[in-house]
């Protein structure tokens, strides 16, 4: 598997999305423009997400062709379902990248054992965020998020990244790193807890 750096540089010019429901100082993203009826904004959406999604898919699939296909399919689905996106309840980046990640995970599992995994296709965005949490993520930059991940302990970072990018469950991670399953679960919980601590608890945002 190709080792992909967890935290990259900030050279990517990220067009910051709107920062809140009121749209204070908001910059309309290409995705928002496309969602509201501008088909030419699809080019901007592709420019914004292709590189990141391809890296994510390549991390998961370790196959450039498969990663390219997963990226293409995921982004196409994201644009197809763009009208269903609710900015009040979810984050755009998470929403778009989630499709690519799902496509990559499906392809990885299908290629692995030719058998769909149990929850495949049942839901695309069932795990939604609360409005306050989504509001919290609106102001999160990729650099901040990467920094939060980078500050994890190494074993926690490995577990979290394997679970996120490669779709491995705790038993698979345990088999890969040679640790008990319970320990891997604890690392996952603790890693997510640490990330959340660095980003700020939702109740704090709510207040």
């Amino acid at each position: 598997m190709t080792s992909t750096p967890i935290v990259g540089d900030d050279s990517v010019s990220w067009e910051r999305p709107n920062r809140g429901p009121a749209g204070e100082g908001a910059t309309v993203t290409p995705f928002e423009r496309y969602r509201h009826g501008d088909p030419t904004a699809a080019i901007g959406v592709a420019d914004a997400y292709v590189a990141a999604c391809y890296r994510l898919a390549l991390t998961l699939l370790d196959d450039p062709a498969a990663a390219e296909a997963a990226t293409r399919d995921g982004l196409q689905v994201a644009l197809e379902l763009a009208p269903a996106f609710d900015p009040e309840r979810d984050d755009e980046r998470r929403w778009v990248i989630g499709f690519v990640r799902r496509k990559a995970m499906e392809r990885a599992r299908i290629d692995a054992n030719r058998r769909p995994w149990p929850g495949q296709g049942r839901s695309l965005n069932r795990t939604g965020l609360e409005p306050d949490a989504a509001r919290r993520l609106h102001g999160l930059t990729p650099a901040d998020a990467a920094a939060a991940v980078a500050r994890l302990q190494p074993n926690q970072a490995v577990a979290v990244w394997r679970a996120f990018a490669q779709g491995q469950r705790p038993d698979q991670i345990a088999a890969a790193v040679g640790a008990p399953v319970a320990a891997v679960r604890e690392r996952l919980r603790q890693g997510l807890q640490d990330i959340q601590d660095q980003l700020g608890a939702p109740h704090e945002v709510a207040q």
């Binding site: 890296r55 450039p64 390219e68 990248i97 965020l129 949490a133 990729p142 998020a145 939060a148 980003l199």
Partner: peptide, 27 residues
């Protein structure tokens, strides 16, 4: 909800990558 919010930051963190990782033709 706490875990979900933390996990939601992971794809955002993935955006902080270098574009050089992808082949220009594939892009």
């Amino acid at each position: 909800r706490l875990y979900v919010q933390a996990a939601a930051a992971l794809p955002i963190a993935a955006l902080a990558g270098a574009r050089a990782d992808i082949d220009a033709a594939a892009y």
